[in-house]
Design a protein around this nucleic acid. Structure first.
Lengths: 124, 124
DNA sequence: CCAATAGTAAACCAAATAGTTTAATATTGT
DNA sequence: ACAATATTAAACTATTTGGTTTACTATTGG
């Protein structure tokens, strides 16, 4: 029985999948931290890591597909630069949850924090 | 040739891996959104999804191990509640990058945004 | 021209992920 | 006691991931 392939996620979902997926790896987070200092070429990015160059190359491709990194090829050297603005998407996703940890809240907000609302009890 | 197993990440890294990894799936993000409304039991959480109950059960375990969800067993029903504060860890990780997209910046900050610093050219 | 350099491509592998189905466990209502 | 309910466990599968090595391509400096 050929099982149907699981449905492709929506574009928005896929973008968030790639974004969070890219961040879910320590090597890639270190690469981002390094790139926050400034652009760099692949070999320089790879040198601190105890793994092969192709491995780092792949990580960079993942970051690129997530939109977190921009690549400009100058001759044979690929210069990678952080696209920090892409991280705003994380912030945006996070936003509706912000009330759960922010301290500067109305008493209503604080109540929500301390004990999350019971599901529709007094509701209607 | 038995290749050595790749080294376990540090505790801090593993925590972030689990956290971002948990967020890197549309089903789990939907579950979190649902839980933001209020706690719920497994069957109720599962009902909107076109997948089996054990599949959702596994997703919940992933969210739990990431610290994003708290489980309280009352008899045979497991009540899941969002642990929204855990998301603050995302915010914390994000913080050093904030200057890359925030508009309210000094001119220095805006420069950094427009074109990221070239790597140590005039440095030293 | 040629050797060295910078990087990707390809083929491979082990482990992890996301799902399935079937079975098991524990609790509840009658 | 028993049937129904709520949920996890286990065993299986396909796909993805993160790494390797080896081969390839393109650019550069002498």
């Amino acid at each position: 029985m050929p099982r149907r392939p699981r449905p492709r996620p929506t574009a928005a979902d896929a973008a968030l999948d790639r974004l969070f997926g890219a961040l879910a790896d320590p090597t890639r987070r270190r690469l981002l931290a390094r790139l926050a200092v400034g652009p760099a070429k692949v070999t320089d990015l790879a040198s601190p890591f105890a793994m092969s160059l192709p491995a780092v190359s792949k990580h960079l491709r993942v970051l690129e597909r997530a939109g977190l990194v921009r690549r400009t090829v100058e001759g044979r050297v690929h210069r990678l630069a952080l696209r920090g603005r892409r991280l705003e998407a994380v912030e945006v996703w996070l936003d509706p949850f912000r009330s759960y940890w922010e301290e500067t809240l109305t008493s209503l907000g604080r109540d929500l924090e301390r004990r999350p609302p019971r599901p529709r009890t007094a509701r209607r």
